Amino acid sequence: MPESSTTLDQPTTAEPDGWLTPARRRRLLKFLLYAVAIFVGLVIVVPLSFAILGGFRSNQQLVAAPVGLPDPWIVDNYLRLLQTSSFWQQVFNSTLIAVITTAVVLPLSSLAAFAIARFRFRGREPIYGLFTLGLLFPVAVAILPLFVVLRQVGLLSNPLGVALPQAAFGLPVAIIVMRPFFRAIPNELHDAAMIDGCGPWRFYFSVVLPLSRPVLSTIAILSIVGSWNAFLLPLLVLIEPSQHTLPIGVNNISTQFATDYATVLAYTTLSMLPALLFYAVAERQIISGLTSGAVKE
């Protein structure tokens, strides 16, 4: 009887599917991510560094070597601007308008977001969609009718003529950011507050607002920085030179000192420095507030 031969399966090594293995794919994606981050960082940092360092140089240095380092370092450009009263007047005007804008945006947006998030009523989603459409409506599109309305109500050459429209255009972003956060508040907390006798207003003031400090801080920071950097609306509304803000001051000084590059760069640096410092200090708070409502509803 012939012996039956059995064939044992030999272990085979799996060949990689091409050169792009999963490990290599992850390394490639990480490399591309870092490359894009570095490129974006350079796009932002290089102009800022040029402006800051250019303020410490003379016009002769800027013409001879535009991208060189100060040699010697000249601080007179910054000191001369800091000693002018017009600069500090513009700082005050920018601060006043930013504070008014934020003071209007915070209560109105939080109340609107609270009502849209916590109450069911007819037309709730269309109203929320209307606020969403507000993101697609830039200030430049409405600048002409807005100017006519402000002139008719007597708000030209008035800080309120800038602050109120800025607050109106800032409401859509604030409401869209706040609504998910308010909806993430547990219903059990609302039920417990109702059992203790809390009405809607008391629940809003005693429970919702204390829990909403991260997102409120984020909206406040975004409103302040956005108002500080606004240019077109203040340029059209604030007619008197004593009412100009810092962005308008940068435009004026770049026209007045068209060939004095060092002074223009120093003034530009001083005008954007408060917003940059404020944003850098509050960066973690902004990220925390924007992601605080990122939960599954």
Rank of each mutant, 00 (worst) to 15 (best):
S5M: 14
S5H: 09
T7N: 12
L8K: 13
L8C: 11
T13V: 14
P16H: 13
T21D: 08
R25V: 11
K30Q: 10
L33Q: 07
L33I: 03
A35Q: 07
V40A: 13
S49P: 08
S49E: 10
F50E: 05
F56W: 03
F56H: 03
Q60K: 15
Q61S: 12
I74Q: 11
S85A: 14
L96F: 12
I100A: 05
V104Y: 04
L106C: 07
L106W: 00
L108Y: 04
S109Y: 02
F119C: 06
F121L: 09
R124M: 04
E125H: 11
P126L: 10
G129D: 12
G129H: 11
L130M: 14
L133W: 07
G134V: 08
G134P: 03
L136H: 11
A140T: 13
L144H: 08
L144A: 12
P145W: 07
V149L: 15
Q152A: 13
L156H: 07
L156Y: 10
A167L: 03
G170K: 02
L171G: 00
A174L: 02
V177R: 04
V177G: 01
R179G: 01
F181R: 00
F182T: 01
R183M: 09
R183S: 10
A184P: 01
E188I: 04
A193P: 04
M194K: 05
I195L: 14
D196G: 05
G197M: 06
P200F: 09
R202V: 01
R202H: 07
Y204K: 01
V207G: 00
S212R: 00
V215M: 10
L216S: 00
L216N: 01
L216I: 02
I221V: 13
G226W: 01
W228K: 01
W228D: 02
L236W: 10
L238T: 05
S242M: 09
S242I: 06
P247Y: 00
V250M: 13
V250N: 03
N251A: 15
S254I: 06
F257Y: 15
F257W: 10
A258V: 12
A262F: 02
A262Y: 01
V264S: 03
A266I: 01
Y267R: 08
T269E: 09
L270N: 07
S271L: 06
A275T: 07
A275M: 07
Y279T: 13
Y279F: 14
E283Y: 11
R284W: 07
I286L: 15
S288K: 14
L290D: 04
V295S: 12
E297V: 12
